[in-house]
Design a binder for these strands. Sequence first.
DNA 1: TCGAACCTTGACGGGATCTTTACGCGACGC
DNA 2: GCGTCGCGTAAAGATCCCGTCAAGGTTCGA
Lengths: 231, 231
Amino acid sequence: MAELRPTILLVEDEPEIRRFLRTSLGSEGFRVVESATGRRGSIDAATHKPDVAIVDLGLPDMDGIAVISNIRSWSPMPIIVLSARVLERGKIEAFEAGADDYVTKPFGIGELVARIRVALRHAVRLRNGERVLLLDDASIDLEKRRVLRGGAEIRLTPIEFRLVAVLARHAGRVVTHRQLLREVWGPTHENDTHYLRIYVKQLRDKLESDPANPRHFVTELGVGYRLELAE
Amino acid sequence: MAELRPTILLVEDEPEIRRFLRTSLGSEGFRVVESATGRRGSIDAATHKPDVAIVDLGLPDMDGIAVISNIRSWSPMPIIVLSARVLERGKIEAFEAGADDYVTKPFGIGELVARIRVALRHAVRLRNGERVLLLDDASIDLEKRRVLRGGAEIRLTPIEFRLVAVLARHAGRVVTHRQLLREVWGPTHENDTHYLRIYVKQLRDKLESDPANPRHFVTELGVGYRLELAE
DNA sequence: TCGAACCTTGACGGGATCTTTACGCGACGC
DNA sequence: GCGTCGCGTAAAGATCCCGTCAAGGTTCGA
């Protein structure tokens, strides 16, 4: 019969961390497949088709970024990055390569499990290719290009709409400043992160129930923004 | 007596898919007319005057795009495209040829039925079997090319009529400037957005109860126009 | 041949939208 | 404690887009 537990691929070279995660995640009800190198990780991702991949950035043979790009070239599976570096530009590179989330060592197992659960939820949503996004308070119909909030229609300007559209396409995943700017304003404005602050605020004002404490348009400090949909 | 069930023309070469859709759509209350080739499809569209046409893009004898152009040259009937290609190219071409909606294989029958219903809802069938669009104040008969308002007939010029027809086919969703210009004036006038302003105003003057505050011919700033039908 | 209906073209004003500039705040490192 | 960096906020200026009016120009039928 089919395996019911979600499968997690763990690409990590340090044996102690592997052992630690094997037992912790196992007791949380996950099935764990381990790869000690980037090369094996890329292969195991294809053969085991895990529900989530956890990739350490500090791999010996192959850069973790390469593993991410590799997986992302053929699969939309959620990828969570594990890294010791705190404010490294590796973080941004990881997101641009297609990572979904990022956990810095040392990390609490509770935090990691929570992020895995979030990633699994998103994956389910992605599979039905929903074209109507639900926020707590509002709904966004990408096809009809319409936004409703409490029954009333909200007007979005062209740029505002393009911005939600890009964020929505990567819903639940961080989109870097550069990516957003490139897709909305074009490659010539890749450095005008200022625009983002302005327009994200406008979207919050229009779509968040409490714009001062955004629950959906989440800022990832130093990296970019993430659109979190309703449960 | 007249057939009450909506008629659907299915232009599809693969027998299994035809059989699958014949039974599924039949049990949903539709009458299905089948054409195995593009050539026959173009003919059947004219003879059976279906309420909706479903066209597969991967036809053997004649490209599905050609079938769409063919139908669109003489009828505003809703056309839903069926295609295995994930590629954007075919999609865009289909829309530019005049398709109204797009479903990619493999598709759920539920999704297809929903889209058929949407396409049908745009036109209301009257007692005598005619299909007309209802605005608060006026009614538009696309087949007979007649517009009534408060019992009296309103004259639309050829271009005005083509413009409502295109908007009506996509009722409820935005149609871009480019698309409108291409379908009404032809590809050589894709940039003359000025025409649209003029003719949209004329349509508003003729069909809106308060032309200064249009409720049906809605402008989407920087994007295009949208026709909003009565509830 | 003439006129009416229709389509095209140009000009202008107002408003929505985008861009630019400025400032406050908290986190962080020195 | 101080300066820097990234972010949020606010508001003014510039720009773009749309609606409107009106004057040619063309087509078509009377």
